[in-house]
Amino acid sequence: MDELREQCPWDKKQTIESLRHLTIEETFELSDAILENDLEEIKKELGDILLHIVFYAKIGSEKKAFDITTVIESLCEKLIRRHPHIYGDTIAQDEQTVKENWEKIKLKEKGNLSVLGGVPKSLPALIKAMRIQEKARGVGFDWEEKHQVWEKVEEEMDEFKSEFNAADEKEIDKEKATGEFGDLLFSLINYARFIDINPEEALEKTNLKFIKRFQYLEKSAKEAGKKIEDMSLAEMDVFWEEAKRLPGNPIK
């Protein structure tokens, strides 16, 4: 990185701000490799992210703000502080207690006025909802039983249906219906979290499943000499049902 920063025209120009969107892209590429369980690709993407970490540290050292050593030292100090059950006298015999201690220590460190102050504003909404709920749970604000959470889902579903009745042709109040739909999604994410399902992972797996089936539909239609846009829903449904019976092959 020292050599690249000195000799490469592109690397010379980069700033912390210019690297930001590239780092986000690399993180999503790592996420794709993890979802595909491609260990070789995971190795490559980890290398790309490590490059970005080294790059940021190099720029930090040029600004005399931080370097790779102080980044790692700061991380080690934080891990020691946030694991008092390992490096102190705190007792934590299960994962949930560890999480609760972590959030309480983090709150003190950052000096946030709110437990939710540490949730990044730019997180995608689904992930943000999950993190908000996890942080609230970390200080004891949570349901006690899963049936209570499901009852909340049903309550929100009824409220949404009252604003958007599929059997009713009258025009809906879109703003109110949007609000109720958001409440319904939030309650479903909460239920997923409560029963230890990651809603982001679950939705992405469904996305990939849909892509695989739709690509099979496209391929089969082409082999049959047909164009999808000219096919009826009934014709497309034949190929769709075939796709559902296929073994789980990775998407190419």
Rank of each mutant, 00 (worst) to 15 (best):
R137E: 15
S162N: 11
K219M: 12
V149K: 06
Y191T: 04
F141T: 04
T70L: 07
E62K: 08
I16Y: 04
F66A: 08
K209M: 04
F160S: 00
K174Y: 09
K226N: 05
L123M: 15
E154H: 04
E180H: 06
T23L: 15
P250D: 04
G47P: 07
S162V: 02
I80E: 15
E241N: 13
T27E: 08
E6L: 13
Q14Y: 02
Y87T: 13
I72M: 14
Q96N: 08
H83Q: 14
S31E: 11
Q96F: 03
E154M: 12
S31G: 06
E175N: 10
E109R: 10
G138N: 02
K99P: 01
T70I: 12
I228H: 01
E41L: 14
T178Y: 09
E144N: 09
D67A: 07
D158T: 08
F164T: 00
E17D: 13
E29W: 03
L107H: 14
E6Q: 14
R82G: 02
V153R: 05
S74W: 01
L22A: 11
C8A: 09
P9W: 10
R131N: 07
S162P: 00
H83G: 09
T23P: 00
K121Y: 08
I24R: 09
R137F: 06
A243Q: 02
G118L: 06
K63L: 14
D168N: 11
E73P: 00
E103H: 09
I16E: 11
E29Y: 02
D158Y: 06
A92F: 02
I72V: 15
I68Y: 12
E17Y: 05
I16L: 15
N165M: 01
E100N: 15
I91D: 10
F164L: 09
E229Q: 10
K43S: 10
N165L: 03
E241S: 06
K135A: 13
G88D: 14
R245T: 14
A136M: 15
R20D: 07
N37Q: 14
K108W: 03
S74V: 02
K176S: 10
K174C: 03
L4K: 11
V54I: 09
K146I: 08
V98M: 15
E29N: 03
E175W: 02
E45H: 06
I80V: 15
H147L: 06
E62A: 08
L35E: 13
I211R: 12
E241D: 10
